[in-house]
Simulated assay, not measured.
Amino acid sequence: MTSRLVLVPPAIGPALREARFYDGSSSIDEAAAARAASVALPEAARVVLSPGARCRDTAEALGLRGAVAAELAPLDAGRWRGRTPAEVGAAEGEAVARWLADPEYAAPGGESVRDVCARVGRWLESVPDGRTVAVVEPEVVRAAVVHALGLPLGTFWRLDVAPLTATELSGRAGRWNLRLGRPLADA
Results as ranks from 00 to 15, higher is better:
Thr2Tyr: 10
Ser3Gln: 10
Leu5Arg: 05
Leu5Asn: 10
Val6Thr: 15
Val6Phe: 11
Leu7Phe: 06
Pro9Ser: 05
Pro10Lys: 05
Gly13Lys: 06
Gly13Cys: 06
Ala15Gly: 11
Ala19Tyr: 10
Ala19Asp: 15
Arg20Leu: 11
Asp23Val: 01
Ser25Gln: 12
Ser26Ile: 05
Ser26Val: 04
Ser26Cys: 11
Asp29Phe: 14
Asp29Thr: 09
Ala31Cys: 01
Ala32Arg: 11
Ala32Pro: 07
Ala36Gln: 12
Ala37Ile: 02
Pro42Trp: 15
Glu43Tyr: 09
Ala44Gln: 12
Arg46Ala: 15
Arg46Asp: 14
Arg56Glu: 15
Ala59Met: 06
Glu60Met: 07
Gly66Asp: 07
Val68Asn: 05
Ala70Cys: 00
Pro74Gln: 12
Gly78Ile: 02
Arg79Val: 10
Gly82Tyr: 10
Glu87His: 02
Glu92Arg: 06
Glu94Lys: 03
Arg98Cys: 13
Trp99Ser: 07
Asp102Thr: 05
Glu104Ser: 14
Gly110Cys: 12
Asp115Cys: 01
Cys117Arg: 00
Arg119His: 00
Ser126Lys: 10
Val127Thr: 07
Gly130Thr: 02
Thr132Trp: 07
Thr132Gly: 10
Thr132His: 09
Ala134Tyr: 13
Pro138Cys: 09
Val141Gln: 11
Val141Gly: 11
Ala144Thr: 02
His147Lys: 02
Leu149Ile: 06
Leu151Lys: 03
Pro152Ile: 11
Gly154Tyr: 10
Arg158Asp: 06
Thr167Lys: 09
Glu168Gln: 09
Trp176Ile: 01
Arg182Asn: 03
Arg182Val: 11
Pro183Ser: 07
Pro183Gln: 06
Leu184Ser: 05
Ala185His: 03
